[in-house]
Design a protein around this nucleic acid. Structure first.
Lengths: 219, 219
DNA sequence: ACAAAGCTGACAGCTTGCTGAACGGTGTGA
DNA sequence: TCACACCGTTCAGCAAGCTGTCAGCTTTGT
């Protein structure tokens, strides 16, 4: 397995690298987000280990933008004990697991193993929704047996509904999901994407609740 | 959320139960594997907290047989520091997370929250009111099991009552809530909205107190 | 029984959302 | 390197349904 380690602390980084290599994986080590981005552009990784505090930015927006671009690479977050909110936000942003520093190296091995296993052999859990079949892990949607191609933004949006079934999601919430932070957007981008999703997936997949937001499901 | 705690140590068990209940979840506590199995047979749980050393057996085989039966209920393992190999085996057996004793109770809350989020089943506290079921976080109301569609204004109004149960709310107070301040409205808007709410939710959801205002609940 | 307070059906205006079209940016293949 | 395809955003005109108003009716308290 090829693993990208993004971590600016030399002591931790060295220990992690040695452990992973001892487990028989290969490691690339980036100490900044920009070099990490370069590495990702240049090669395909099976797993990312992502520290949240880096010299040139925070890990969460990085992860969000990665997911927005359509990456499905599993991510394990490495974080300090006092960053609970970050960890939760990290899981929301699309991380698969997290480890709290200081962590035991055997734990790291176990987590890597279980994430890898989750993505490897076992067939993905498939969701049914009306005439739709959804494989979340593979980012694949079929309608009446035929594959539907969703763009990156469309998928991020749709995924938000899948992960919050029956919840009302305001446009603000959805924007927050599409755009890492900031985003005081005065446009109807969300509406347009919703429109396209409905066109591809069927009109009644997403319900409008006027003045409040959107919800997965009919009526 | 309904949680099954499987733990034979009374001190730890009590602390865990209190923490979880403080977080607003309900807890069933089994001190042996056989009573845990009974509990699982009799009710549906959203999460299992599983100690690995119990008087009538070890937790790992228990977890394995649970998974073999097809259960997908999330499981968090509670384990002592010196049982690293067990923890690794636990993740392999299908656990979702683990905590090392002695653990911080805030850490427990965070892990429960994130596991729950990952499974995103029905994490919201649900309120019952006569034949109504209300999920405030999801902005969802059901009457006799069927979803009721509230408009934005109607929801704001209804929410005011939910957040001030048994309180008398004057029309002025309610107007203030609907319209950001100012609002020198010389009409019966509130009455109209109350009327519409009663039509959708049932006549006795909101009581009129003549000359004073409205109150949640019958008579 | 009377007056005051509250209720509710109808309706028009207006906010909100929908969607086709066009534009600009980015990446891709020849 | 250039042309092309694709994606995301913006805009404008249109459609839909929410919301406030009002009038006439019902209820309540005295």
């Amino acid at each position: 397995m090829r693993i990208l380690l993004i971590e600016d602390d030399r002591v931790i980084g060295t220990a992690v690298r040695e452990q992973i290599e001892a487990d028989g994986h290969s490691v690339d080590w980036a100490m900044r987000l920009d070099t990490a981005a370069d590495a990702l552009a240049g090669a395909k990784f099976d797993l990312l280990l992502l520290d949240l505090m880096l010299p040139d930015g925070r890990g969460i927006p990085f992860l969000k933008s990665l997911r927005a671009k359509g990456s499905t690479t599993p991510v394990i977050i490495l974080t300090a004990l006092d960053q609970i909110s970050d960890r939760i936000e990290g899981l929301n942003a699309g991380a698969d697991d997290y480890l709290v520093k200081p962590f035991d190296l055997a734990e790291l091995s176990a987590r890597i193993g279980s994430v890898a296993r989750r993505y490897a052999g076992n067939p993905n859990p498939v969701l049914s929704l009306g005439d739709l079949t959804i494989d979340q892990a593979a980012r694949r949607v079929e309608r009446e047996g035929k594959a539907v191609a969703l763009t990156a933004r469309e998928w991020v949006l749709f995924e938000a509904f899948l992960q919050n079934p029956a919840q009302l999601l305001s446009k603000a919430k959805l924007e927050e999901r599409l755009y890492s932070y900031d985003a005081e957007i005065e446009s109807n981008t969300i509406e347009v994407h919703i429109s396209r999703l409905r066109k591809k997936l069927g009109a009644d997949v997403i319900t409008t609740e006027r003045g409040m937001g959107y919800r997965l499901g009919r009526s």
